[in-house]
Amino acid sequence: MKQAIFRSRLLPWALAAPQLIVLFLFFYLPILLAFFWAFHLEQPFGGGSQFVGLQNFRRVLGSAEFWSSAGATLLYMVLASGSSILAALILALAADRALKVSPVARNVFLWPKAVASASIGVVFVFILNPYLGILAPLNDLWPGIWNPRTNAVHTWIMLFAANVWSAIPFSFIILLAGLQAIPQELHKAGAMDGAGPWRRLRDIQLPLLTPQLFVVIVLEVADSLSGSFGLIDTMTQGGPGGATNLLVYKIYADGFKAYDLSGAATQTVILMALVACVTGLQYVFLERKVKYDR
């Protein structure tokens, strides 16, 4: 480790204390409380709380609704982060070339960062409104060809479109920075060896981009989940028929609308475990990759 120069017993702790307190209160304590509630049956108004062991987990894991929600969550994590990273990668590869539009594109592609997922949800739900939106003429010609309110496939398409839109900036910045850090000499050497652009993409750019790709994958998987709430709450409310009722949304509904504190806490614990596992594994893997490369 670098630095570590000053000696003091109290000062570093005093410096770190404010953040540690905030983290304890609003990050670690909620986690602890979730675990506590997951093993108790909690009366909403706090009248009583009884220890029930694994009963909450049995109940949650035994409900078909939970599994369909968990399935939808996994599907969303994979497809939403996958589609947005792919889009950002293509755009970054294009913007890496010194074209006239590149500077403009590099600026504009960051703009969605300024738009909350809930805001773009409001906008997309209007634009893609089956009767009043941009696709309404299609519906006039072929009724029912586009109806995200009843057709789950259409709903998913709408969600992914909005998610790609709002998730482009972060991945784009990181991937572009990675691409630009690849030395020109490697390109030249590749070209002299007769490797065409596709070949160089596959053999030079992508392998050298792995550290950035991993960062983007790790963060995008977690981000897609937290951003999903704003999209779902404004666009689908979990519908149609629960098709887009992701765990993040279901926990909110169970806890805040139905006062099922124990059930919501149990699902929170399960979801946190899932995300922590996925992210933790990637972190371990990623750390090694980054060190290897730089």
């Binding site: 304590l29 909620p30 979730a34 977690a222 926990i251 806890g255 805040f256 504190l261 929170t268 995300v275």
Partner: peptide, 23 residues
């Protein structure tokens, strides 16, 4: 301390909304 701070990146507030609200 560093680990305690960095670990919080993994779990967004949205996941623990119910108990964060209670706290």
């Amino acid at each position: 301390v560093y680990a305690a701070a960095v670990a919080s990146i993994m779990l967004p507030l949205e996941l623990m909304i119910i108990t964060a609200y209670q706290v």
